[in-house]
Amino acid sequence: MSQFIESIKVEDQKIFLLDLHQSRVNKTFEHFGKQGSLDLAAVFKNLDHNEDGLYKLKITYDLDKNVRTQMIPYAISEIDKISLVENNVYDYSFKFEDRKELERMKQKAKADEIIIVKNNHITDTSYSNILFKKGKDWYTPSTYLLNGVQRQHLLKNKKIKEAEITTQNLKEYSHFQIINAMNDFDDMFIYPLSKITNLPETSEYLQV
C-alpha cells in the first residue's frame, strides 16, 4: 500500500499551518476512496515532545491509518548548485513517501537542488515550491507539481502572486527563493537568478 508523508513545522512546541496540512490529508483519503481521515492534531497531542527550538514533525501514514512519526531538529541549508531539469511526465499530485524519481533526477543533474521543467513550464524543486522576484513582487508558478501548504498560505495572505513562468520568460525575474512547510520568506536565502547553472539561453537544460 502507498505511503504518504506530511512534514510539519513545530517551533517552541507550537505547530504551524495545521489546518492546511489536515486539508491535504483529508483530500488524499478522499481521492483514493477511503472513508474518514487521519487526525493530525491528535497525533501531535500524543507526542512526547517538550523541547523548544525548530523541529520538523514527519508523519508517515497509509490509507489504513497506520502512522509513524519522527521529530527531527531542523536548520535551513543553503543551496550551492541548482539546475533546471526537464521531465514532461513526472506527477507528484499527492505527497507520496516514495521520492526515488526525484532523487534520480537530482543525481543525474549532479546538483544540490533541481528545478523541474514540465512542457517548458517551471514547476517545483525536488522538495519545495519556488518563488521568483520581478520588481518588488514575488511570484510562484501556476504550474506547480504539489500545491504546498506554505504556497497556499502565502497566496491566501496576498504575500505572493501566481504567474505562468516558463523557460521563455524566466529571465524576466531577478531572484528566487524556495518555500515549503518549514521555510517561509527568508531574506537570508534569496538567490540571484544567475545561481541557476543552466539557464536556457546559456545552455540546454538537462533532460532526464
Rank of each mutant, 00 (worst) to 15 (best):
K34C: 12
N119P: 00
K156D: 10
K81I: 14
E6W: 04
Y74L: 08
D112P: 09
L199W: 10
R68N: 13
S83D: 06
E101F: 04
K14D: 07
I165L: 00
D137Y: 05
D112H: 11
M182P: 07
P200D: 07
Q13I: 13
R99H: 04
Y127K: 09
K95L: 01
N46K: 14
R104C: 06
E86F: 00
F16P: 04
S174L: 02
K159F: 02
I72F: 07
D91G: 00
Q70A: 14
H31C: 04
I8D: 07
I165G: 00
N88S: 08
F176R: 03
Q177D: 05
N66I: 06
L170Q: 01
D64N: 15
A42M: 13
L155S: 05
T28L: 03
E172I: 02
I165V: 00
L154C: 01
I179C: 09
R99P: 02
K156Y: 03
L38R: 10
F96Y: 15
P141M: 02
R104K: 15
Q3A: 09
D62I: 04
E97C: 08
P73W: 08
L38Y: 08
P192N: 03
F4Q: 07
L193N: 12
L170E: 01
W138S: 07
P73G: 08
A181T: 13
R68D: 12
K14R: 11
T28N: 08
L54W: 07
N50P: 00
I72E: 10
K136V: 13
F32G: 09
Y61R: 06
D187W: 06
L17I: 06
R151I: 05
K108L: 15
E172C: 05
F176I: 04
T123P: 01
S142H: 05
M1K: 15
N169H: 02
G53I: 06
I179N: 10
S93M: 03
I130D: 01
E162K: 12
K171V: 08
K14Y: 04
S174Y: 04
E6H: 07
